[in-house]
């Protein structure tokens, strides 16, 4: 009997394959999380002409990022913790950061699929096309935006233990962000409220996405949004990781 500590790459490959199999099994929920951005693309065609293609595309991606980062990630973490799945994985010689990295990699892949889907549907449905630079920048910013919501999800899963509570909180947060996203900027009259919406997690992500799709429009506000996004990630992820427990007891 020899004790061998497995290579981190082997551990990651096994976890990643299993997480991918889980994601594939849940493809219906993946499709549902892509549904809202697609609905936006189909129903906001007039806005695309009025407010510009990047506005519609960035709103669709920003809303999709919330479903993936906030809903899918948070709920899967909460479920697996509640069911003791993490507890079983932690008995193996798998560093906890590898378990998390595998989960987050799946979400990042989902973000790539979402962004690509929005670009394709946006092109065919709303006739919105971007420059090559715009497409490339948008992918990177989508990942950054995804990180904002993933860290927010991590914070919720860290501060709350009960699955039902987490489920309710993520749904309420999703609804609030969606309302802010679809109507906030358009309907808000008060300048302070408008400013708060602009620099909320949703507002920052949407602003960065919009500017990355049309890099010539990147301005001081967008840079502020970028810095505020980093601050959100640090605070949310810091609180989420510090308070996260691998079991509910």
């Amino acid at each position: 009997m020899e004790t061998t500590i497995p290579k981190t790459s082997t551990v990651f490959a096994s976890l990643f394959r299993a997480d991918l199999q889980v994601a594939f099994s849940n493809r219906r929920s993946v499709i549902i999380s892509l549904l809202v951005p697609m609905i936006i693309l189909f129903t906001w065609k007039p806005f695309a002409q009025k407010m510009g293609g990047p506005f519609v595309l960035s709103t669709a991606v920003a809303i999709g990022l919330i479903s993936i980062g906030l809903m899918a990630y948070t709920l899967s973490m909460a479920r697996d913790r509640e069911k003791g799945i993490f507890q079983r994985l932690r008995l193996a010689p798998a560093p906890t950061w590898v378990i998390m990295t595998s989960r987050i990699t799946i979400q990042l892949m989902m973000i790539m699929v979402l962004t690509l889907g929005v670009f394709i549907v946006g092109f065919y449905q709303d006739k919105v096309s971007l420059s090559a630079q715009g497409y490339i920048c948008s992918f990177f910013v989508a990942i950054l935006g995804g990180a904002v919501y993933l860290s927010l999800g991590q914070m919720i899963a860290g501060l709350l233990k009960n699955f039902e509570t987490i489920n309710a909180v993520t749904r309420i947060t999703y609804f609030c962000f969606m309302m802010v996203g679809t109507m906030g900027e358009i309907l808000a009259v008060n300048p302070t409220v408008k400013q708060m919406i602009r620099f909320s997690p949703y507002g920052c992500v949407r602003m960065m996405l919009g500017a990355s799709m049309d890099p010539a429009k990147w301005n001081q506000d967008t840079t502020t949004a970028l810095l505020v996004s980093f601050a959100y990630i640090i605070v949310f992820a810091g609180l989420g990781i510090k308070n996260f427990r691998w079991e509910t007891k």
Partner: peptide, 15 residues
């Protein structure tokens, strides 16, 4: 995950 997938996962993470 099915039984084979579970065994593949754990055989992998135990190296």
């Amino acid at each position: 995950l099915n039984v084979v997938q579970i065994l593949q996962l754990f055989s992998g993470i135990y190296g």
